[in-house]
């Protein structure tokens, strides 16, 4: 099955669709959780930090919600992707198909709800009284960069997790740490220059920065960071897919041994 064949895309679509459909099944609010979860997180963080950060950030509500939606896409997609090969061992045992599609569909199922959240987010920003700016049309490009980074990390994590089973637990801790080490709910200006320099190595800092530059007034764009984040993301994606293609038998053997 070649990536340019229609059957490859039909399979990607089917795997993504079913993964998405299964996710919220059994919960009372079902699909609404997609929107409810970020909304509740936003409410909690906003209530906690508004009085503190309001002085440093113009439009703190917009700053927070934009950061939160982007961060959550990365966190959800990677944590679902990391166990995806193990969870799909039944499929791997029974059918011959390109294994990278398992990771693609895991990320794709989160992308689906993320795009919806982003749509609702834009509506929310309008409700806050923000006017659409010249940054809005740039949004698809930033979403694409974010997707590339998340997909690249997911491919690498999924591969590593078939060798190191403990990785998904470790990743849970790392993403929690990452939430605090990335300016999701606090402004970067609050960090001293000494630590700020280290934080610049965090790719998500630049991706969040780009989103905020597009959407939140008063946020300036630091394009320099994206100059290494975008090629890095592309490299991770290409390397990940190549490993999946060339080492698919190794992956199957490892998944069977789990």
């Amino acid at each position: 099955m070649k990536p340019w064949s229609p059957s490859y895309w039909f399979l990607l679509w089917e795997l993504t669709r079913t993964e998405f459909k299964v996710r919220d099944q059994g919960t009372v609010f079902g699909f609404l959780w997609t929107l409810l979860h970020p909304a509740l997180m936003f409410a909690v963080l906003y209530a906690l930090f508004i009085s503190w950060f309001d002085r440093f950030v113009e439009q703190y509500a917009a700053y927070l919600i934009v950061g939160l939606v982007q961060w959550q896409f990365f966190e959800k997609a990677t944590s679902i992707a990391i166990t995806s090969l193990r969870r799909k061992d039944g499929l791997i045992r029974n059918f011959k198909f390109p294994l990278e599609l398992i990771v693609f569909s895991a990320v794709g199922s989160v992308l689906w709800s993320y795009l919806l959240e982003t749509g609702v987010l834009l509506g929310f920003l309008l409700c806050l009284g923000l006017k659409p700016t010249l940054g809005w049309p740039l949004l698809p490009a930033v979403v694409l960069a974010h997707l590339a980074f998340t997909l690249g990390v997911s491919l690498v994590l999924a591969l590593a997790a078939v060798e190191f089973q403990d990785l998904d637990r470790v990743w849970g801790v790392l993403t929690t740490a990452g939430f605090y080490l990335t300016p999701v709910f606090y402004p970067l200006s609050l960090i001293s220059q000494r630590y700020g320099r280290f934080m610049a190595f965090n790719p998500l800092l630049h991706i969040l920065g780009a989103f905020r530059a597009c959407l939140v007034p008063g946020q300036t764009f630091q394009a320099a960071g994206l100059f290494w984040v975008v090629p890095l993301s592309a490299a991770l994606c290409v390397a990940g897919v190549l490993v999946f293609r060339r080492r698919s038998f190794w992956i199957t053997d490892r998944v069977f041994a789990l």
């Binding site: 059957s7 399979l11 795997l15 029974n94 198909f97």
Partner: peptide, 16 residues
């Protein structure tokens, strides 16, 4: 029905 379509896709059948 969902499982029919997943199964068909896994067997390399196109959507049409």
């Amino acid at each position: 029905l969902d499982n029919f379509s997943v199964c068909a896709a896994l067997l390399g059948i196109e959507r049409a």
